[in-house]
Structures are given as C-alpha cells and as structure tokens.
Amino acid sequence: FKEKSRGVLREWYAHNPYPSPREKRELAEATGLTTTQVSNWFKNRRQRDR
C-alpha cells in the first residue's frame, strides 16, 4: 500500500469504518487498489481497533 492510498483510506475510516460496496468501489478507483484490497484493509483496521 502506498502512503497516499493509506492516507485516503485512513481519512475515510475516521468518518465511516463500514463503507458500502459502492463506496468501496469508489475508494478502489481513488487509491488504485482492488475492491478486495480495500475491503481487507477496512476489515483488518476494524480488527486492530478492537
């Protein structure tokens, strides 16, 4: 994950830790990652924050 991608994901996570499938697609396009990578990032981040 590039620093820029992580920044976008972290910013989004601060507002909404549970993005919808459509939001995940938009995030994937914005970061250049796949929707699966975006989903996993959020899942792992939520797990880490428990």
Rank of each mutant, 00 (worst) to 15 (best):
K2G: 10
R45F: 06
R22K: 15
A14G: 12
S20T: 10
R22I: 15
T36R: 14
R48P: 04
E26K: 03
T36E: 13
A14E: 12
T36Y: 09
A28D: 04
P19N: 00
R6A: 08
R25A: 15
F42Y: 01
A28M: 00
A30C: 11
V38P: 02
R48F: 14
T31P: 00
P19C: 01
A30H: 08
T31H: 03
D49I: 05
H15E: 14
G7N: 14
P19A: 03
E3R: 03
G7L: 15
R45V: 11
R25M: 13
N44P: 03
R22T: 15
P21D: 09
A28I: 03
L27Q: 00
D49M: 04
G7Q: 15
R6F: 07
K24R: 12
K43E: 12
N40L: 05
A30P: 01
P19M: 02
S5H: 01
P19G: 00
P17L: 06
R10M: 12
P21K: 07
V8T: 11
T35F: 15
E26W: 06
N40Q: 06
E11H: 03
K24V: 14
A28G: 05
G32W: 02
E23K: 09
L9F: 04
D49K: 01
P21V: 11
E23W: 00
L27I: 05
S5C: 06
R48Y: 13
H15R: 10
G7A: 11
R6I: 15
V8K: 07
A14R: 08
A14T: 10
N16L: 01
L27A: 00
R10D: 13
S39N: 08
K24H: 09
E3P: 04
S5V: 13
N44Q: 03
R50S: 07
T36W: 07
L27D: 07
L33M: 13
L33F: 08
K43T: 10
N44M: 06
T36S: 10
R48T: 12
R10C: 13
R48C: 14
N16G: 05
K43W: 03
R10S: 12
E11G: 08
W41R: 04
Y13R: 01
G32D: 08
Y13F: 07
E23Q: 07
R48S: 11
S5F: 06
N40W: 09
P19R: 01
L9K: 00
L9E: 01
Y18P: 03
L9M: 03
S39Y: 06
K4W: 09
P21I: 09
R22D: 13
N16V: 01
E29V: 04
L9I: 02
P19H: 01
S20L: 09
R46Q: 13
N40G: 09
L9W: 00
P17V: 09
A28N: 01
F1E: 15
R48M: 08
R22P: 14
W41I: 06
P17C: 05
A30M: 09
R48L: 10
G7T: 13
G7D: 15
S39W: 00
N40E: 11
K43I: 10
R10T: 12
E3T: 06
H15F: 07
R45P: 04
E11L: 02
A28V: 04
K24E: 15
Q37D: 06
Y18E: 10
G32A: 08
T31I: 07
L33D: 04
E26D: 10
Q37T: 08
R48N: 13
V8A: 09
R50M: 10
K24T: 10
Q47V: 09
P17K: 08
Q37L: 04
T35N: 11
E26P: 00
A14Q: 13
T35H: 10
A14K: 13
E29K: 04
N44T: 08
K2E: 12
R10W: 12
H15K: 12
E23S: 02
Q37F: 10
V38G: 04
E23T: 04
L33Y: 06
L33Q: 04
P19T: 01
K4C: 13
R22Q: 11
N16E: 11
P21E: 14
T36V: 08
P21F: 10
E3W: 02
R48G: 12
S20C: 15
G32S: 04
F42G: 03
Q37P: 03
P19E: 02
R46I: 07
G32F: 03
E3D: 12
V38F: 00
R10H: 10
S39E: 14
S39L: 01
A28S: 11
Y18W: 08
R48K: 13
N16I: 03
R48D: 13
S20I: 00
T36I: 08
Q37N: 06
V38R: 02
T35K: 08
A14L: 09
T34S: 12
A30E: 10
Y18Q: 10
W12R: 07
T31N: 05
R45H: 14
T35M: 07
A30W: 06
T31A: 11
F42L: 04
D49G: 04
A14I: 09
K43C: 08
E3K: 13
V8P: 05
Q47H: 10
R50T: 12
S5R: 08
E29T: 03
S39T: 12
N40T: 10
N44H: 13
Y18K: 09
Q37S: 07
A28H: 13
